[in-house]
Each structure stands twice: as structure tokens, then as C-alpha cells.
């Protein structure tokens, strides 16, 4: 039961992107299309789950004072694996995500979960925490990239939805990313305020 809680808390209650406001850099930068969003979500989830598991497994061997560098080494290892796999099997996606793939290293979600959760909990809970947070991040990415792809390019999953719809190109550009997340956050606050 506890594991299940760890899993689902990341989806809404502690959604990393919208509630904890972590990992916003890749979140805004790659959310131009749903395909990119899913790619980034899956990559981040993979790194998150693996590093959570490893860190919680070795937490007792790491001296407290140098724990952060140790976490970073673990995380960077998995990021490098992701980078190489992506380069080999999906070069187009790798090009689209650009520098934001290596930057998963400094993604606050990964390090934040390592420090706040994996270093204090057992492997099983950390695994579920990683999966939950990863899915939460991916869902948030799906939401924002869906909105941006629809409004900014008039498409969903790269398919034209409404023929006569004239997309607002700005939504696919950086100002649009900032605008969409601002309005989404405002909308969530509004709902929270109503309750």
C-alpha cells in the first residue's frame, strides 16, 4: 500500500513540474511537440528511476559530506547511457532535444529526489517514487506539449487536426512556453482556491 502511495503521489499531489516547480528548463524548452515531450519524459524517467534505485542501494556506503558529488556521478552515468542510446537509435529525437539531454544531469527533479527521497528510503520505495515522479513529469510534459503543439502548429502528434485553424506561431516559440506555463499554473491555483 505504501509503495502504491509513493507511486501515485508524483502524479498530481506532488507533481514535480507543476507543484514542486522542478526541472522546468527542459520542461519548457522541449515541449514544442508531443513527440519531443514524450521523448524527454521517457529519458528523464529512465534516469530518475535508475539513479533513485542505485542511490538508495548504496546510500549507506556514501560519506554524508561528499554525497552530492557521488549522486551526481551516478546520475551523470545514466544520463550518458541515455545520450548514447538515443544517439544510436533515434538520432532525430536526439537532434530535436539538443543540449537538453546532457542537461538532465542538472535537472532538479533527479537530484532533488535523490537527496530528498532515495537517500532516506529503501530500494523498493525509491523505485516506486522514481516511477511515480517520472510518470508525473511525463504527464505534465504531455499536457503542455499537447497544448503548445495544438495552438502553435495546429497539430496533434504531428497530424493536422482542424484544417482552417490558423496556429499562433508564438506558442511554439520561447515566449509561448512561458505564457502557457504561466496560465496553467494560474489555472491550477484558481482551482485550488475554489476548493
Amino acid at each position: 500500500m505504501k509503495s502504491l502511495n509513493e507511486l501515485i503521489k508524483g502524479l498530481i499531489k506532488e507533481n514535480p513540474a507543476f507543484v514542486l516547480m522542478l526541472g522546468l528548463c527542459p520542461f519548457l524548452a522541449v515541449s514544442v511537440s508531443i513527440a519531443n515531450g514524450i521523448g524527454m519524459g521517457v529519458a528523464a524517467t529512465f534516469v530518475l528511476v535508475c539513479s533513485n534505485v542505485i542511490i538508495s542501494a548504496i546510500k549507506n556506503f556514501i560519506p554524508a559530506r561528499i554525497r552530492i558529488p557521488c549522486y551526481i556521478v551516478v546520475i551523470a552515468t545514466f544520463v550518458t547511457i541515455t545520450e548514447l542510446v538515443m544517439k544510436a537509435y533515434s538520432p532525430a529525437l536526439n537532434r530535436a532535444l539538443g543540449i537538453y539531454v546532457p542537461l538532465i544531469v542538472v535537472n532538479c527533479i533527479v537530484l532533488g529526489r535523490a537527496e530528498a527521497f532515495a537517500s532516506k528510503n529503501n530500494v523498493r520505495d525509491s523505485l516506486f517514487d522514481g516511477i511515480g515522479m517520472g510518470i508525473g513529469f511525463t504527464l505534465a510534459l504531455l499536457l503542455i506539449s499537447g497544448i503548445r503543439e495544438f495552438l502553435g502548429a495546429g497539430k496533434l502528434f504531428s497530424l493536422t487536426v482542424i484544417k482552417s485553424f490558423e496556429p499562433a506561431l508564438v506558442i511554439a516559440m520561447p515566449p509561448g512556453a512561458l505564457l502557457v506555463i504561466a496560465l496553467l499554473l494560474g489555472f491550477f491555483n484558481l482551482i485550488k482556491g475554489r476548493k
Partner: peptide, 8 residues
């Protein structure tokens, strides 16, 4: 600025 960026 919004219009120029959106529907150039």
C-alpha cells in the same frame, strides 16, 4: 508583439 510573432 504577440500578433507579429503569431501570425506574421
Amino acid at each position: 508583439a504577440f500578433l507579429v510573432a503569431s501570425w506574421p
